[in-house]
Nucleic acid binder design. Structure first.
Lengths: 197, 197
DNA sequence: GTCTATAATCAGATAGAC
DNA sequence: GTCTATCTGATTATAGAC
C-alpha cells in the first residue's frame, strides 16, 4: 500500500462500521464520511461509487474472516481430529465476530441486500471460504466422528447462519465472547439435549 | 372483516411476498401494487403509509407463526415431555417457513432493518413468541433432559437465527421441507457429532 | 484532497379527475 | 376505489473553487 491510502482505509473502516450497524440502505455516505473525518463528496476522490466502496468492504470482510479462521484451525497441525478442527473453526468464527471486526460483521449483515451483479462477484470470493467449511464438515463425517445422516450442505447453511447471527444480538454481559463461542460449539456439535461433562 | 377488505388483503399478501424476497428498502410500492393488481398511489386508499403497511405485515407474520407453532406443540397434550415439545416447535417453525408463508419469512428477513419506533412495537408483539420459546427451553433444562450448562437466552437466539435462515437459502431439491425440519431438530437437540439411531 | 454548491435520480406521498 | 399528474424529500453523484 502506498502512502496516500490512509484516508482510503479510514473510509473503508468507517463504512464497515456503519454498514454493520445500519445495513446497506441505512448507510448514508454522509455518515460514512463523518466517521472518516470528511464530508460525503470527498469520498468520491477515493471511490468511484458507493457500490464500489461497499464491494471492497465485503471482499475485505470475507478475506479477513477466512484468514482468521484458517489460521486458528491450521495451528492445530495436520494430525488434529476433524471434530477438533471443526470446533476450532466454530469458536474462531464467533470470537472474530464478537471481538469486533466490523468488516466480517458487515458481510453477515448486508449480504442479502446487495445488487445481483455484486453478489455474483462476492459469492465467487466467498466460495473458498464456503469450501473450507464444507471440507471440515465432510471430513468429520468421513472420519466417523460425526453422523452422516446429516446433509453436509444443510449443516453448513444452518451452522453459518447461526454463527453469523451473534453479532446482531450479542451485548456484553455476564457471558463474554469466549463463553458464547463455546456454547455455540457445544450446541452444534453435541446438541442441546446432549449430556457432556 | 368487512367486505371491503379484499384489496387490502391482496396488498398485504403482495407486500409480504415482495418484502420477503427484496427486503425493506428493495420493496417498492410500485412492485407491491403491481402484485395486488393496482398502481402505487392506490395503496394509499388502504394504508396511510408504507411503514404502516409494513408494520401490519410484521404483526401478521408474528401472529401466524406464533399460532402455527403453538398449535403444533399443544396438540401433543399437556403431558408430553419438554424435549418432545421443543422438537415439535422446531420442526413446525422450519416447516412453516419453507411451506411458503410469506409473512413469517418477511419478518425474519426485514426485522433488522425496520425503524426503531416500529421495532419497539413489533418487539412487544414478538415477546409472547419469544417467551414461548424460552419456556420450552427452560422446561427441558428443568426436566433434566437438556444440559443446563447452556444459557437459555443464548440457546434461544442461536436456535431462532438458525431456523429463520432457512427461508433465505432453501431451494426445492432432493430434500423437502420435512427433511430439512428434521435435520434442524436433530442438529439442535443432539448435535452434529451425536450418534442417534 | 477536501470543500461548497448543485445537479440528477428516485421513491414515498398528495391532489384531484373519473 | 383506482387512475394520472405532480410534489416533496432524501441521497447519490458531479462541477469546480481552494
Amino acid at each position: 500500500m502506498g502512502q496516500g491510502d490512509i484516508s482510503r482505509t479510514r473510509i473503508l473502516d468507517s463504512a464497515a462500521a456503519v454498514l454493520r450497524q445500519k445495513g446497506l440502505a441505512g448507510a448514508k455516505l454522509s455518515e460514512i464520511g463523518m466517521g472518516a473525518g470528511m464530508l460525503a463528496p470527498s469520498i468520491y476522490h477515493h471511490f468511484p461509487s458507493k457500490d464500489h466502496m461497499v464491494e471492497e468492504v465485503m471482499m475485505e470482510g470475507i478475506y479477513r474472516n477466512n484468514r482468521h479462521i484458517m489460521a486458528r484451525v491450521e495451528v492445530l497441525g495436520p494430525n488434529a481430529a476433524p471434530l477438533v478442527r471443526l470446533r476450532a473453526a466454530i469458536v474462531a468464527h464467533v470470537d472474530f465476530l464478537l471481538t469486533g471486526d466490523d468488516y466480517s460483521s458487515a458481510v453477515a449483515r448486508i449480504f442479502g441486500d446487495i445488487p445481483d451483479e455484486m453478489r455474483k462477484r462476492v459469492l465467487a470470493a466467498y466460495s473458498s471460504f464456503d469450501n473450507y467449511w464444507r471440507d471440515l464438515i465432510v471430513a468429520a463425517q468421513a472420519d466417523g466422528s460425526a453422523s452422516d445422516k446429516f446433509d453436509a450442505t444443510v449443516v453448513r447453511k444452518f451452522l453459518i447462519a447461526m454463527l453469523d447471527s451473534c453479532s446482531s444480538w450479542y451485548r456484553p454481559g455476564k457471558l463474554g465472547p469466549p463463553q458464547i463461542a463455546e456454547q455455540a460449539a457445544d450446541l452444534l456439535l453435541h446438541g442441546f439435549a446432549g449430556k457432556q461433562p
